[in-house]
């Protein structure tokens, strides 16, 4: 499918011919898998299960999609809800999983928080990772969407179904808590 075809047009097409849905899936599956994994899936198989349920739910609810919203926000919202539902079923606290790309983002977070870079950046990365682990789910979620998925405040508002002001408040609190955690980490090392 041509990349220039809009998501909204693909949704319309998928409602007529199921096969057209594959183009939407191909456009978003890697991003959603990454988000779901970062949000705390236990292993790649579980993450893939959540990914599959996300797209199946999206397909079943395709008629509920509001074309005035970006499809990206809608599919991330479903992925977020599916991940939360998964962890409620498992009664486990989500545990973040990191990959090589994430390490760069840890540095970006450290920069954004105006944290002094030490000569050994792996210390900062380890500190940021530990601090992220210690955050409440809702704060970690906004940080992941902002820094890892590079979503705007409006997109995060649409994904988490929160007022824009609340997103800003959560993000500021998350940063403050992260900074606090990092100070503690520094004191202990």
């Amino acid at each position: 499918m041509n990349e220039r075809v809009s998501d909204q047009e693909l949704v319309k097409a998928a409602l007529i011919h199921r096969e057209e849905f594959a183009a939407l899936v191909a456009r978003y599956d890697v991003r959603i898998l990454r988000y779901v994994t970062r949000l705390g899936s236990l292993d790649p198989d579980t993450a893939k299960d959540v990914l599959q349920e996300t797209f199946i739910k999206a397909y079943l609810h395709l008629n509920d999609y509001d074309p005035s919203l970006p499809f990206s926000a809608w599919i991330y919202r479903i992925a977020h809800n599916e991940t939360v539902t998964h962890f409620r079923r498992q009664k486990n606290r989500p545990r973040p999983v990191e990959n090589e790309d994430d390490l760069k983002v840890f540095d970006e977070i450290a920069d954004d928080l105006d944290i002094e870079h030490e000569s050994n950046t792996t210390i900062n990365r380890a500190a940021v990772r530990a601090a992220l682990d210690a955050l409440d789910f809702k704060y970690r979620d906004v940080l992941l969407l902002r820094f890892f998925e590079e979503k705007s405040y409006d997109e995060i508002s649409d994904i988490l179904e929160l007022p824009r002001g609340t997103v800003a408040v959560y993000l500021n609190r998350a940063k403050a808590k992260l900074k606090e955690q990092l100070k503690r980490y520094d004191e202990h090392t």
Binding site: R18, V25, D29, V30, L33, K48, I56, N63
Partner: peptide, 27 residues
């Protein structure tokens, strides 16, 4: 973009489940 077989697998799963979008009137 996708670089795996997931879209194809998903379409097979949708077909196996006989999934169809819920009608608009329900929403």
């Amino acid at each position: 973009d996708s670089n795996d077989t997931f879209p194809e697998e998903l379409m097979q799963e949708l077909a196996a489940r006989g999934a169809v979008p819920k009608p608009r009137w329900q929403f």
